[in-house]
Design a protein around this nucleic acid. Structure first.
Lengths: 178, 178
DNA sequence: ATTGTTCTTGAACGATCGTTCGTGTATTGT
DNA sequence: ACAATACACGAACGATCGTTCAAGAACAAT
């Protein structure tokens, strides 16, 4: 997973995976009958179940509101600014590299985006219920916008990991939510 | 350029380029002394000078205002929904695939994002001057947000080219700019 | 027409790609 | 202790990777 995350699918060779895991080719192929592609799918699954929940944090819990959304975005920026942060998000990377030519990957990525949108929508709804933001706001629409912004943040961060720029993007995304 | 655009850098072999251009390996390498990598850089340059201006359209002209920004985003959505649109934007694809490990690519992508931001900022400024939007808005900040949204749109479009979703993202990005 | 120059060609290189499989080594059950 | 089973190993496969280069064709100038 870490290899695919860092280098991408085509750029990581099976030999890289052997070196990273310490598992020899024969064993790798008996454990993942689909070969390299199956290893990618397994990595995406593992990423979704281990890394994503950690990044989402409290945002995925029932009581989450605007503060938790903000915390998620702040974490995103912090990650992108760290040295190893340039690897970005495995799911976003896979979306760009493979989704257009690999329906299996596209499905997983779609699921991830849907999960993000659900979190945002729920948080905005409770924010309205708590009176933190005006009830005139459309949570579903705004959530889609936040999803796009989070993905865009990743692209911008890859090419230009500048704190000021990333913070400005996040701040802008939160205008009207306070 | 079209090959790199459609398949990405690592996924296109030199043989693919030979087949696509009709130019034999020997001639390719004498025309591009840097080999495959030089061909990518040349493609990025060609993309910036030919494809990008066409996509930006009137947005890059002096008098551009909110309407031209909107037209750009609408064009983006239209492209993403077309069958060949799933290839997305060569510069975004390269940002995700190569920018983190290839400084030359990162520089070109950075230049592109800066160009986008400049267009948006200028358009928002003239919109304020024309009274189309309130003078209280910060054009620079909002422009950065629009850049992120445009990049995010590309990622979402790759995995889930759904018209309703994409339109919602654009509409959301334009709240407050009428 | 002939020479000198430029450009094109396609075969071939070593390296690495993803994958397989026969062999050897633990592990398990009795 | 021994047989049966499952697992791990790494050498090796054909294919393809990016790249080079000697040889030939096309062109230009005299």
């Amino acid at each position: 997973m870490r290899q695919f995350w860092k280098r991408g699918y085509r750029a990581t060779s099976v030999d890289d995976l052997v070196r990273a895991t310490g598992v020899r080719p024969g064993s790798l192929y008996s454990a993942f009958p689909g070969g390299k592609h199956a290893l990618l799918m397994g990595s995406l699954q593992r990423y979704s179940r281990l890394v994503v929940p950690q990044k989402l944090g409290e945002l995925e819990q029932p009581g989450a509101s605007v503060a938790q959304v903000r915390a998620y975005f702040d974490g995103l920026v912090r990650d992108l600014l760290s040295p190893e942060g340039r690897q970005g998000c495995l799911l976003v990377n896979s979306a760009i590299e493979n989704a257009a030519v690999d329906p299996e990957v596209a499905a997983v990525v779609q699921g991830h985006l849907a999960r993000l949108e659900r979190c945002f929508t729920a948080a905005l709804r409770t924010a309205i219920r708590l009176g933190e933001i005006p009830a005139s706001m459309d949570p579903a629409a705004r959530a889609k916008g936040l999803v796009a912004t989070s993905q865009g943040l990743m692209v911008v961060g890859k090419a230009n990991p500048d704190e000021e720029v990333l913070r400005a993007i996040v701040d802008n995304a939160f205008t009207g939510l306070s």
